[in-house]
Write a protein that binds this DNA or RNA. Structure first.
Ligand SMILES: [Zn+2]
Ligand SMILES: [Zn+2]
Ligand SMILES: [Zn+2]
Ligand SMILES: [Zn+2]
Lengths: 149, 149
DNA sequence: AAAGAAATTGTAACTCAGTATCAATAAGCC
DNA sequence: GGCTTATTGATACTGAGTTACAATTTCTTT
């Protein structure tokens, strides 16, 4: 099957669920898929307002679980009261290495995690859906800062 | 060096920081280290009240970051507005396999994660502190429920 | 052991992400 | 177009976690 845009995928998802496609949902999704980075609700709302796109925060909060359900985005991590998301549709699954000091993030993927998933599935009888690996460390810049301090 | 109790470790930590050892802190720590499972602030508070141990929630909230700083406990995961913690002092590092439906948790550890940490450290120049791997799936009981539904 | 400086406590007020309510509006189907 | 029903935005609410502050307690110094 040909590659479908996020919007196409989502329209089909909505139809399947007897839900409606609205201009507000379209605006939010377009905004989300124009950001090629991790994002949070507040940042999204602010950048939409700046562009004169007026949707309520409630609509954003209401849309996010649908986009997750439709496998278009996923929660990445929760930090200091903020939940961050990222695109997953059309992206390779990857994990995150985060600097504890400056929150800089590196992405990586590793085939061993798939093997591990398989072994866990056999060992515990779970059907594995996904995994989230967060590696926490200190980036080279922050290490330098610490040494000189 | 001989094994030190959590209390001993924490008393030393407090002294180092110019902080004080109080009966409230002692009561909370004793309660935390009597629970051999993942715990959250609310559950801790309720079980202390049941035993007639009267400390305020604010004191619990104030103590937890100190216990984390002292490497006695760590945040495990955040789910539905609740933050869960577990002991780490004197425990092997492990990861979690969680059922998306019933939240049942299995613990496991895998030496490949240490290798991965080392490789990431070299590749990105980070000093690695720790990792948190959460595998999400459906446990066998919940699979059975889904099939019969 | 008493005094004094400084940290800690509990209470209550507050913050802020996320949710629920509801009347007005709009999408989708005939 | 007209009808049914989902969605919207405004607003009120919830609940975890934080903060301010006066009263209390720890710990050090003598
Ligand atoms: Zn850094
Ligand atoms: Zn990412
Ligand atoms: Zn289950
Ligand atoms: Zn655990």
């Amino acid at each position: 099957m040909a590659f479908q845009s996020e919007l196409e995928v989502f329209r089909k998802f909505l139809k399947n669920q007897g839900m409606r496609y609205t201009p507000e949902r379209e605006a939010i999704i377009k905004e989300i898929f124009s950001i090629h980075d991790h994002f949070d609700v507040d940042g999204l709302y602010i950048s939409m307002r700046r562009k004169g796109l007026r949707v309520s925060k409630a609509s954003i909060y209401r849309l996010i679980p649908l986009l997750i359900e439709a496998n278009l985005i996923a929660e990445v991590f929760f930090d200091k009261g903020q939940t961050y998301y990222e695109h997953i549709y059309g992206h390779e699954h990857h994990c995150h290495l985060r600097c504890k000091e400056c929150n800089k993030i590196e992405e990586f993927s590793d085939p061993r995690l798939k093997d591990l998933e398989k072994e866990l599935s056999e060992r515990f009888g779970y059907k594995i859906l996904t995994h989230k690996l967060q590696v926490i460390g200190i980036c080279s810049k922050c290490q330098a800062k610490e040494d000189s301090a």
